[in-house]
Design a protein around this nucleic acid. Sequence first.
DNA 1: TCAATTTAGTAAGCGTGCCTAATAATAAGT
DNA 2: ACTTATTATTAGGCACGCTTACTAAATTGA
Lengths: 153, 153
Amino acid sequence: MVTKLPEETIGLLLVDAARLLRIQIDRALDGAGLGLTAGEARTLAYVSLYPASRQTTLAAQMNVEPMTLVTFLDRLERRGLVARETDPTDRRAKTVQLAPDVQQTLEQVLGITRKVQEEALRDFDPDEIEKLRGLLKRMRSNIAGSELGREQA
Amino acid sequence: MVTKLPEETIGLLLVDAARLLRIQIDRALDGAGLGLTAGEARTLAYVSLYPASRQTTLAAQMNVEPMTLVTFLDRLERRGLVARETDPTDRRAKTVQLAPDVQQTLEQVLGITRKVQEEALRDFDPDEIEKLRGLLKRMRSNIAGSELGREQA
DNA sequence: TCAATTTAGTAAGCGTGCCTAATAATAAGT
DNA sequence: ACTTATTATTAGGCACGCTTACTAAATTGA
């Protein structure tokens, strides 16, 4: 008996599933002619979820380095989908808002990603979806909170 | 009532969890000084899982384009971890093998990824792990089999 | 038997996503 | 006042995966 077959590994499954899903989302967004990538859509979703947040806060919510967020926001801002405003209480900081007329685009984006997901979960019953959501959530927070690879100052 | 909160979305959770996991695996591999990336480790695992497969076959198993696999194999071959052999029955094709003395490295790699996973699933009981594995597997095959974004020739 | 088609692998080049390091401006602590 | 910390950003780089186009070999079939 050697080590457990890698095929069966949660990590492999997770990474595979996520990659495939991202590709599908990219294709679907592309097909809709929105000119958005999966990452941009994700950022847009987070901006709508945490409106008027500072970039640092937003980056933390997304589990991403601030620099990564800057790039996404640059692109979204250039497309007129979000707006950065200087925080009146701290002139270093900027808060991020959805641009005024973007609600419809947002709904469209969310609709597209929802559709891909429904396809991915097509034979799941509601219980299973909830179960999966819960497990993924716990897993995400476990990893986010883990200091395994981080410099243990 | 607007659309369901994106935060709760399976897709977002999945992509987040996968990204975080890959980063952790990268860090852990890096820390071990193996000079391997997560993708290379993944490829190595697949080679050991499906030994003596042709590249096309392997790529299909990994749900990856043949060209993507070529790049991974190039790097692994350069490091002496895998070997390509011309298929005697078809000189166009090449079969991929683990290099002779690589078993130990492989075990080490698998050990590292297993450790990261245990960390990620630290508060999961065995039932939940099995459940998650099953759900992810179904989801992966749903997406892989979906023709949503593909050119419907 | 020889041309046409298909298949296996690869070269080249790109876009996305994410990172680290360094910097400028501002804020906060002593 | 001066040092330290924080916010966003510029600059630069790497991993991953893709598409497109090419070459060599095999297969089909007239």
